[in-house]
Nucleic acid binder design. Structure first.
Lengths: 76, 76
DNA sequence: TCATTTTTACTGCTAAAGCAGTAAAATCAA
DNA sequence: TTGATTTTACTGCTTTAGCAGTAAAAATGA
């Protein structure tokens, strides 16, 4: 979860956004952005998806039982 | 989100688990398992991770800004 | 250095997620 | 078909995530 936090913070920085700006862009409150980047585990999956979409980050699942990886969110 | 629901349901079936069994295995209530497989978007990220770990499904992020994909949960 | 911006952290409050219990509907297996 | 299992769906109840507001700490930059 900490890894995800770092990825998100990194992308936000590279996009030149403040936490507040990312919050507005994602349609969320600033608190959640802060919490996510802090690595808080108990956030809504929905909130995470909104942030990932705003930052154009793909979320994928894979396993030994699957031939191909599957992308969960729709932004590329 | 619907895609994720199908992946999870599929893996559960292949593992020969009922929703209740997966719930216990994940340390969650049966309601959440049902909700997740129904494609409910407003579930705790934490809950999802627990289910994915129980089913040995990797959750990964990727983007154009990243060279390599990053795995979020620790189970392979 | 000093002012401005940003981040971190805390506060109640409100909305809702998660829970077990129950029961009907659906699925499965003998 | 028939009985047992599983899934779907709904019920209150409890816990808590998310919210804005505020302010201190940290970072930025002129």
């Amino acid at each position: 979860m900490d890894k995800l936090a770092k990825v998100i913070k990194n992308h936000r920085k590279k996009a030149g956004l403040t936490q507040k700006e990312l919050a507005d862009l994602s349609g969320l409150g600033k608190t959640v952005i802060f919490d996510i980047e802090k690595g808080k585990e108990t956030v809504q999956f929905n909130s995470l998806i909104k942030v990932l979409n705003a930052l154009n980050i793909s979320l994928n699942v894979s396993s030994k039982l699957m031939e191909n990886e599957v992308t969960i969110n729709e932004k590329s």
